[in-house]
Design a binder for these strands. Structure first.
Length: 558
RNA sequence: GCGCCUGUAGCUCAGUCGGAUAGAGCAACCGCCUUCUAAGCGGUAGGCCGCAGGUUCGAUUCCUGCCAGGCGCGCCA
């Protein structure tokens, strides 16, 4: 139902109408007419509620002056009742001012759709595999993972809201020498021996080693390699559970915890190798088995099976990709840290080797570094992990909502600094509170409305009464939400939702300052009070829906 | 050397599938609570959108080159 609603939004209707006018004038224009058109929302209110520059864009291909084309558009729209004014401005912009009563439709849509307002069908039915975090289960999750824990989760929510079928996956790197080092580190910690030089040195290793022994005292009876492996396998499960627990508290949930090791069960890797071989890109050189990724633009070919018969990391990468495709995902999104951006070439080439269009089936998002400041200095040391601050410690410092919101509100391709002191503050400089405060404020107004017997709801919108500049601004902002969500999903940029919600909160605060919602003193309740309260409830709904997409709570009281 | 990312107000950053006067918060200054949450609102001030070319009706946005910073270039994982 939400899909139909967003299709029926007033701006979509008008842009469709403009395209129809242009198509009708095809013989005159004699050029290609675009298939879609997005109305802009002008910054300057003198330019109407919506504007389009399509006349300027079509001027060149048609050879007709832009103002002339604008006239055609205006003539074609003039009969519409939902448009109050049409104006041709500057070189050929068409400015559209909506009829006041037609704006009420937005409020009705919001109230009818409730939690699903903003959902759409832009990515309807597309099966997307969203892989993020993907850490070694050999220690606590740290800051580098934290950005993805927040952004990846939000992106998953946004993609789902746009209609995609999303599977969020955490790839557990539970194979290879890191795991063995981890086992050896636990073993030596438990036995009170010095840690291996290239092992893990964080303080958490001691605790974990104790836990392992406590849960399985018999490991102490083993010896040598057998004991190392026992520590590794038991410690791995405990550490993974700890990661899962922390993520759960952080509000980040996965559909699939995918074990790298499992790629080698039941000859799956052999099957993948055969798939790639059958497509002609596997070769043997120097006793190693390679994938010829240079066929598709990679810098160098990649080893899958080393000359000693052991598996290179890329073997897992390739098998994992094939697993995703065989499980029916058409788009595989990888969210990687900046230090892994060199993977782009090989992952795209891998897809091409599998016969896929890498531009479509593989998307790689690179997240730049996160730094954390406290007291004007960079925080580097973690008590637990020894070197790098952990996700858990960040949450202890600033709380889940502030941490998530701050991580999400910036585009991922720029490095960011989190200032703990700001995140603990409760003022304008802390956007999460700014937005949450707007929501709590509305809830307070609505509670008071109920106490005063002021009714509000879909049958009390009275759009003809909501003519104050601030009211029109607010209604206009509310109507943008579905487009913002669709854009965030399409561009894989959940931060757009955060920025929108901040904007909306600001518009609401200004409305609140200028438009009294509830009766003053012994003033008689009127339809305007109900209409404004209804507008408030629609705003609360949209703020709440926006925060939901970010995994941030929308408190009713603060 | 090659590749990816970044350079916008004093600070932290938005914006850009090319559009009308480049935005927000902080910091500075001046205002607004005898009635809905002041965790809020209004105002003043602050800009060669890194530099130089190109594309065009129009470039902060696209292209090229340069400068500066971050990151990466293993039969490691």
């Amino acid at each position: 139902m939400s899909a139909e609603q967003s299709n029926l939004s007033i701006q979509d209707e008008i842009s469709a109408a403009i395209l129809q006018v242009l198509r009708d004038a095809h013989s005159q224009l004699n050029c290609d007419i675009p298939t879609s058109l997005t109305l802009e929302r002008p910054k300057n209110r003198d330019h109407g509620d919506y504007a389009t520059s399509i006349a300027l864009a079509l001027s060149k291909p048609s050879g007709i002056a832009p103002r002339k084309i604008a006239e055609i558009i205006v003539a074609g729209l003039e009969a519409r009742k939902d448009i109050a004014a049409l104006e041709i401005a500057g070189p050929g912009f068409v400015n559209i001012t909506l009829d006041k009563s037609s704006q009420g439709g937005v409020i009705a849509n919001i109230l009818a759709a409730g939690k699903t307002f903003g959902h759409g069908n832009k990515l309807n039915g597309i099966a997307i595999n969203l892989e993020f975090i993907s850490a070694n289960p050999t220690g606590p999750l740290h800051l580098g993972h934290t950005r993805w824990a927040a952004v990846g989760d939000a992106l998953g929510r946004v993609l789902s809201a746009a209609g995609a079928k999303v599977a969020r996956e955490f790839y557990i790197n539970d194979r290879g020498v890191q795991m063995d080092k981890f086992g050896a580190s636990l073993q030596s910690a438990a036995l009170g021996q010095p840690r291996p030089e290239d092992g893990y040195h964080g303080a958490y290793i001691d605790d974990l080693a104790k836990e392992v022994v406590q849960a399985n005292p018999e490991v102490l009876k083993l010896s040598g390699e057998e004991q190392t492996f026992a520590f590794r396998d038991i410690g791995y499960k405990l550490q993974l559970a700890q990661q899962q627990n922390v993520l759960d508290k952080f509000g980040t949930h996965f559909d699939v915890w995918f074990s790298e090791k499992s790629l080698y069960d039941n000859n799956f890797f052999a099957h993948c190798q055969e798939v790639l071989r059958s497509k002609g890109h596997v070769f043997v050189d120097g006793g190693a088995i390679w994938l010829r990724t240079t066929d598709f633009g990679d810098d160098k070919d990649r080893v899958m099976v080393k000359s000693d018969g052991s598996m290179a990391y890329f073997a897992s990468d390739s098998a994992y990709y094939i697993s995703k495709r065989e499980r029916g995902f058409e788009i595989c999104i990888y969210m990687l840290g900046a230090d892994h951006h060199g993977y782009t070439g090989r992952l795209k080439a891998l897809a091409a080797c599998n016969g896929d269009d890498p531009e479509y089936s593989v998307e790689i998002l690179i997240g730049q570094m996160v730094k954390i400041m406290e007291g004007g200095e960079e925080v580097k040391l973690s008590k637990r992990a020894g070197t790098i601050i952990t996700l858990e410690e960040l949450v202890e410092k600033v709380g889940v909502d502030a941490a998530r919101y701050t991580l999400i509100r910036y585009p991922v391709d720029t490095p960011m600094v989190m200032d703990v002191d700001v995140l603990r503050s409760r003022t304008n400089e802390n956007p999460v509170y700014y937005v949450q405060y707007a929501h709590a404020r509305i809830c307070a107004v609505l509670r008071n409305a109920t106490d005063l017997g002021i009714k509000y709801g879909a049958d009390l919108i009275h759009p003809e009464l909501l003519v104050h500049e601030r009211e029109r601004e607010l209604i206009g902002a509310l109507g943008e939400f579905p487009r913002v969500v669709a854009g965030a999903a399409e561009l894989r940029e959940p931060h757009r939702v955060a920025r929108y919600v901040e904007e909306l909160a600001g518009v609401y605060h200004r409305f609140y300052a200028d438009c009294r919602v509830l009766p003053l003193g012994d003033e008689t309740p009127s339809e305007l009070h109900s209409a404004r309260a209804t507008l408030c409830s629609a705003t609360a709904q949209v703020i709440s829906n926006g925060l939901e997409l970010l995994g941030v709570s929308a408190p009713e009281k603060m």
